[in-house]
Design a binder for these strands. Structure first.
Lengths: 152, 152
DNA sequence: TTTTTAGTTCTGTTAAAAGAGAACTGATAT
DNA sequence: ATATCAGTTCTCTTTTAACAGAACTAAAAA
């Protein structure tokens, strides 16, 4: 299982890591997720990850659990082996998009609440705000449609 | 311009502020943006903002400039008055969606680079990765389409 | 029953983010 | 030319995030 990474792989883990940091992951989580996308072995154990990235046990544990919570990775076990084998859940991207679309509902409700509580004296502003809520609802609905239409 | 906020308004600023913090804004930026969405006066000066939110000058300055950079707010000036009047730029949401869609291009290029550099021994994984890049390209294209179709 | 394994949790450190308050700046008004 | 105004920048403090390393735990093996 000793998974020696090439320089190119290390470089890709860095780039991909940075991108994912900008998407809200902690540095360690971002690199774990990158590793599971780039490593030649698609299923890595806790210690594989720890060693490959030079992380402490606590950092590895927190990163892995964070990614599990976010459903960005999963794990399986093998009979007669109590290690967990972690893997990247790329197939879950559609779900991630779906979730982010559904997450807009709360945001939009808040905007509607803001609009309802606004002074009536700012017609143009309120009209813009109303249009924004309509745009968000539209975008949400259409987005979900296109995700559902993806291949079959 | 002393803009006294009702309790409901303060509450909405808090809720909306928190949501926007989760979207990556600093606490102060989030509240400034919320204030400009909720306040009865749609154009507020630096000091209006500072007073309404109880922020220091530095925090106000940084928050405002941050939001200007992100194009989440704008400002205008009035003849014979050197204050700047800041306002929320809600109409920019479409642009924000557009930008985030266009931002996916770089992400997808990186995924393709990862795929190109992967071992050929993990057929299923590579196939999934390929499909992901195709999905992202599809989603991107369709998303841009629906944004453009909004009230065309 | 004791030991090993595969992690988790706790404690402490370091670094970065966020903001307060005061000093500063550059334009305008007097 | 001096004062004022609208904001900016600097210094310092507080808070939080991220992580290391060691102590701990629960399940399985010996």
């Amino acid at each position: 299982m000793s998974n020696t990474l090439t320089d190119k792989q290390k470089e890709l883990i860095e780039s991909f890591g940075v991108v994912q940091e900008n998407m809200g992951l902690s540095p360690a989580s971002a690199r774990v997720n990158a590793l599971l996308t780039i490593s030649d072995t698609v299923e890595l154990t806790f210690d594989d990850i720890r060693e490959a990235l030079g992380l402490s046990k606590s950092a590895t544990s927190n990163a892995v659990n964070n990614l599990l919570m976010l459903k960005r990775i999963g794990y399986k076990t093998k009979p007669g082996d109590r290690k967990r084998y972690f893997y990247s859940k790329m197939g879950q991207w559609q779900n991630a998009f779906m979730d982010s679309m559904n997450g807009l509902t709360g945001y939009n409700e808040l905007l509607k609440d803001i609009l309802k509580n606004r002074t009536k004296d700012t017609k143009e502003f309120n009209e813009q705000l109303k249009e924004l809520t309509e745009f968000i609802a539209y975008y949400q609905k259409e987005s979900i449609k296109i995700i559902k239409n993806w291949k079959k």
